[in-house]
Design a binder for these strands. Structure first.
Lengths: 144, 144
DNA sequence: TCTTAAATGTTACTATATAACAACACCGTT
DNA sequence: AACGGTGTTGTTATATAGTAACATTTAAGA
């Protein structure tokens, strides 16, 4: 999906959720989209400062939190970063694969796997909620 | 397993791996063991400072890294913390369940699930390495 | 003993994230 | 239009997390 298409889909999704994709949030989303792979909050902050003069950390973190909450971004804890959700409108459980060599990130549907894990967790009394899985390894290009 | 037993097992495991569980590393491990659930690096640092007067962040981080590397602790990225590996000597792929309500953490063997995920990842060309999975949800006590 | 590698100490710094409150904008009601 | 509530954004300050670089010490073998 191209950038404009993604923004349009994001807009739609927010409407459906009854939340507002404000100008600021859209701008932050665009800044994230402008990068390949994982983006860090302070990178977004720097980009934002370039575009609007000044901006403080809370501005960026709020927008990023919102976008994660809305299902448009995924937070990648292990990397202190964010990636664009490539499955807007469909699944919201991603299996996020991070290449430890080149940093490349790809995302596939994790729902089947999480169904299995959900059962296993229930044996312990744990009711796991919807979420993403992050796995690290080597991508095809780095495995040669 | 009680604390002393765990330390003994840790000692053995380090010997088998040909690495050294030095006094400092053992002390840090004991400090982590003294807590329930997730422990933060700076909490360990504070504890260490109480016991030996002074200590700086690198001292703690090095010890924690070592203990993770040796399979005695797991790093919990999503929480910026560490937990004791409750499966020393057996599996080294844990499924870590974190209760978002009470913070309780439990760990079970994740190997079967990871075998499935490994296959799914391979379809994308990703060779995922040995690792832990973290899932959040509600524990039995908090589900009522 | 000497030498070398590993471990630890030390200083300084960079990076990540949040609290707390102020100001503003939007929206429905009177 | 004026009001009041809610959600959003701005602002300042600070808390928390992690690492780089180099000095010093310790441990283990030649």
């Amino acid at each position: 999906m191209d950038k404009a298409g993604f923004i349009a889909a994001a807009d739609l999704q927010c409407q459906q959720q009854g939340v507002k994709l404000t100008a600021l949030r859209r701008q932050v989303l665009e800044l994230v989209l402008a990068h390949e792979g994982v983006v860090k909050a302070y990178q977004v902050l720097a980009d934002l400062q370039r575009e609007r003069g000044i901006a403080a950390p809370p501005t960026v973190y709020r927008a990023l939190d919102f976008l994660v909450e809305a299902g448009l971004l995924h937070k990648v804890d292990a990397l202190n970063g964010y990636i664009v959700c490539r499955h807007v409108g469909c699944c919201h459980e991603g299996l996020i694969l991070v290449c430890s060599a080149c940093g490349d990130v790809s995302e596939v549907d994790a729902s089947p796997a999480l169904d299995v894990l959900r059962e296993q967790a229930l044996l312990q009394g744990f009711a796991i909620r919807q979420q993403n899985l992050l796995l690290t390894g080597l991508c095809q290009a780095c495995r040669v």
